[in-house]
């Protein structure tokens, strides 16, 4: 069985249907990419997977490792191994990066009936991971995302992912707002986290990101449905022809 199974997923916001029957299954260790034009439902899919309030699932199911995600709140899904790297990471004034990470780790340990993490050991571990992503100690002492540049915000998201070691990661337009150098650092960070037990879903407009994070499978999303599935060549095709085919096909 695949690590993540989405079946016939329908979701709406304020009564407006956005996702209209998505089927998707991702094997453990695989990286899938979802590409699509604006308004195709890409971000909605990421929020529905993470369990954000206000997104109502009207039909279908999502299973992670056999567990029904739709039965869980956002925090329970996170503890179960879902991680959403956000397109627009949120500022938390007064909350340092280190505190935030420790709280997140301790929430998992608490759920597992374990004691809180040893503060010194944790500090060391985070610092080591931060270093590879170019996240400085100074950044960890600052309030989460407050005054961060676009690149710093995204690197910080990947650092959280590295520390929390999720089973299933959704990267929502992680390339947006990044210059070439930042894109490279972030992609390398993501690639370092690829492993046999972990699956990823990379959501993007552009083929550019997929040069750095090479997916196993690419899906094209338009009008709330997956219109086409293929290999790397699909991204190149889209790069040449744009989304016009899909937009018109479904219209």
């Amino acid at each position: 069985m695949a690590l993540l199974e989405i079946e016939n997923l329908h979701a709406e916001i304020d009564g407006k249907p956005i996702l209209k029957g998505i089927d998707l299954s991702i094997e453990a260790g695989q990286v899938h990419a979802i590409m699509g034009p604006n308004g195709s439902g890409k971000s909605t899919l990421s929020y529905v997977l993470a369990g954000r309030d206000g997104y109502e699932v009207t039909e279908g199911s999502i299973r992670l490792d056999g567990q029904d995600l739709l039965e869980m709140e956002a925090d329970e899904r996170a503890v179960a191994g879902v991680f959403l790297a956000m397109q627009y990471p949120v500022e938390l004034p007064g909350v340092t990066g280190m505190t935030f990470l420790r709280e997140a780790v301790n929430a998992r340990r608490k759920a597992a009936g374990e004691d809180e993490i040893d503060a010194m050991g944790f500090l060391k571990m985070v610092r080591a991971k931060a270093k590879t992503l170019g996240v400085t100690d100074e950044m960890l002492k600052r309030a989460v995302n407050v005054g961060f540049s676009g690149g710093e915000k995204k690197r910080n998201e990947i650092l959280q992912m590295a520390v929390l070691e999720p089973k299933f990661c959704v990267l929502d337009e992680t390339d947006s707002g990044l210059d070439i150098d930042a894109l490279k650092v972030v992609s390398e960070g993501v690639n370092a986290l690829r492993s046999a037990g972990r699956s990823m879903l990379v959501i993007t407009h552009y083929q550019r990101l997929l040069n750095h994070i090479e997916p196993d499978v690419i899906h094209v999303l338009a009008h709330g449905r997956i219109q086409k599935t293929g290999g790397k060549e699909l991204a190149l095709e889209l790069e040449q022809n744009g989304y016009a085919d899909y937009v018109e096909a479904a219209a």
């Binding site: 993470a50 369990g51 954000r52 309030d53 709140e73 956002a74 925090d75 899904r77 996170a78 503890v79 879902v82 991680f83 959403l84 956000m86 990471p89 949120v90 500022e91 938390l92 004034p93 007064g94 909350v95 505190t99 935030f100 709280e103 997140a104 929430a107 998992r108 759920a111 309030a143 959280q160 929390l164």
Partner: peptide, 23 residues
Amino acid sequence: QLFYCMSRGLSTEDAVGLIVNGF
């Protein structure tokens, strides 16, 4: 902010506590 904290595993109450303590 609440969703961001919860998507990292914090319960609603812990999220509120964290945000208010930051404030």
